[in-house]
């Protein structure tokens, strides 16, 4: 192999390796990109988990939407978890409180986190909560069960095409992770 060819090969291999490394980084760059994209467009039904202030909205009593409540446990977490009402008819602009019940079914303390999701995803930005057990991790004593309220309002600006909104919570048992920290 001539020196000339050797040099050409080395240069090309360097460039191509660089491309590979950049693409490896690109895979990781997709993580923040995805979050930003979802936040900007509201595509994936991720819900803002910070409380909004209880402001006065114009109540639109001519419109009525159904809000459904769905509860689930991740990887069969040892808990009981349900909504006290399966659904609620609401007027946009009016505040409502619904109660959820969760219980630790183990004899040990438990740290659990509820993750909300709203469907259809694009309705998420009009669904505002002033109070929710999903804002922070919940600590349970052994066997403790308690009622946890969620206070919410549907923004009257929501497009009329939405008639039903589903609010789903999944409880994750984070005890092990919490113990490690």
């Amino acid at each position: 192999m001539t020196d000339e060819l050797q040099r050409k090969n080395v240069r090309l291999v360097r460039t191509l390796l660089l491309v590979a490394v950049v693409m490896f980084g690109f895979g990781f760059a997709l993580v923040p990109l995805y979050d930003v994209l979802c936040k900007v467009t509201g595509l994936n039904g991720k819900v803002d988990t910070t409380a909004v202030k209880e402001t006065g909205y114009q109540i639109d009593s001519n419109r009525e939407l159904t809000v459904e409540f769905v509860t689930a446990l991740n990887e069969s977490a040892p808990m009981e978890f349900r909504a006290e009402t399966p659904n609620l008819k609401v007027h946009p602009g009016q505040f409502y409180t619904v109660n959820f019940y969760a219980q630790n079914k183990t004899d040990k303390p438990m740290v659990a986190q509820a993750i909300p999701s709203i469907s259809p995803g694009l309705a998420a930005e009009y669904f505002k909560k002033t109070e929710c057990f999903c804002f922070t991790e919940q600590k349970f004593k052994p066997r403790e069960g308690r009622i946890m309220p969620v206070r919410f309002v549907v923004d009257p600006k929501i497009s009329p095409e939405y008639k039903t909104i589903t609010l789903a919570y999944t409880f994750f048992d984070n005890t092990e992770k919490a113990e490690k920290q």
Partner: peptide
């Protein structure tokens, strides 16, 4: 060259999610 590194990255994230308490794919 463009895609294999991306796949390697994805499975690396699985690995850290499982063993190093990252939460790339963990909703909790």
């Amino acid at each position: 060259i463009a895609i294999m590194p991306v796949f390697a990255g994805a499975v690396t994230m699985l690995l850290t999610d499982r063993f190093f308490d990252t939460s790339f794919f963990d909703a909790a």
